[in-house]
């Protein structure tokens, strides 16, 4: 039997490696993360828990009176892409998601829509919602009342008449799929560890607020802009993993067209870690604090907001 010992040792070690990995992923997950944030007049105190050393970012935002998204309505399509986004949102502690067929959207577009957003997948808006007129429900019942939109755009850019109520034109969008060099748009991109660099179908970077990356040719991969009384977020690219993750990150963090970064803290959380962010008293009522762990490989996210944010 001695001649088989070496082989069986290799078999055992390999099987152990596979078995322990499988068990840790599916049966006895040893990883856990948590956070608590207390938002005060001049700053926010945070406390983080992580079962193993993990990068963290804690960011305080001023939304300047604009309500962050509390409820997301996803307009369903055939692609199933929304499933990725919903799971990424769950990972970040955002679970107030409603799935609706295009014909059902009107039912949700009534009453107080402030703090609500509709996510439209790739393509034109459903005709019941918007067909090119500023009096259509998308404006009359939603954007004019403070509702928000997340839109993944179109492969064939609509004509100017369709885009006019948004203050846009066909030439506002990038129609070239060629690879482009990009750079970060600012603090939100850095602190939220956004990854979406593809500007195909993106909006011109001088329109609204670029949130992620901006190309040399002047287009933005993710843009937030004020649309009537609400926020409209344009998401470029081709519905890949980075865009699903970043879309979820922006929603979970409560980013609006008016959001600015107040303060941030970053480091490695191991066991219990605590710290403090500071800001001026005038920002207190509009403060949102977002905790994320994992850096560019997000494993946890949670939003905290002041009572009137």
């Amino acid at each position: 039997m001695k001649k088989n010992t070496g082989i069986m040792v290799v078999v055992a070690l390999a099987a152990l490696m596979v078995g322990i990995g499988e068990a840790s992923i599916y049966f006895v997950n040893p990883y856990s993360y948590g956070s608590e944030v207390s938002i005060g007049a001049y700053g926010a105190d945070y406390s983080l828990q992580a079962s193993a050393p993990t990068e963290y970012n804690v960011i305080s935002f001023d939304n300047h009176g604009v309500s962050p998204v509390e409820e997301l309505i996803v307009c369903l399509d055939d692609s199933g892409y929304h499933i990725r986004i919903v799971k990424e949102l769950e990972l970040r502690g955002f679970e107030n998601v409603v799935l609706a067929e295009p014909g059902e959207l009107l039912e949700y577009m009534s009453g107080d829509v402030s703090g609500k957003a509709i996510l439209f997948p790739f393509g034109l808006f459903p005709e019941e919602i918007y067909s090119g007129n500023a009096s259509d429900p998308l404006f009359a019942d939603w954007l004019d009342e403070g509702g928000s939109i997340y839109w993944f755009g179109c492969s064939e850019i609509p004509d100017d008449a369709y885009l006019l109520p948004f203050g846009l034109a066909a030439e506002s969008f990038n129609t070239s799929s060629a690879s482009e060099a990009v750079s970060r748009s600012g603090d939100i991109c850095t602190q939220l560890c956004l990854r979406s660099d593809n500007v195909y179908h993106g909006l011109r970077s001088d329109i609204g607020t670029p949130l992620a990356y901006v190309s040399e040719s002047g287009y933005s991969s993710i843009t937030a802009m004020k649309a009537s009384e609400g926020t409209m977020v344009f998401i470029a690219g081709d519905m890949d993993d980075d865009f699903a993750s970043d879309c979820a990150q922006i929603i979970a963090a409560g980013i609006t067209y008016a959001t600015t970064v107040l303060d941030y803290s970053a480091g490695i959380a191991d066991g219990s870690t605590s710290g403090q962010l500071t800001y001026s008293a005038s920002a207190e009522d509009n403060v949102t604090v977002y905790v994320q762990m994992g850096g560019y490989y997000t494993v946890y996210g949670q939003r905290f907001q002041s009572a009137s944010a």
Binding site: M17, V18, G19, I20, G21, E22, S24, I25, P30, Y31, S51, A52, P53, T54, E55, I268, A269, D270, G294, G295, Y296, Y297
Partner: peptide
């Protein structure tokens, strides 16, 4: 699954807090 085991080593043995 192998990566799962490597993840355990990365986190609980070697304390690798940042992947990139």
């Amino acid at each position: 699954y192998v990566l799962g085991s490597l993840g355990l080593l990365a986190n609980f043995l070697f304390g690798i807090g940042s992947y990139g």
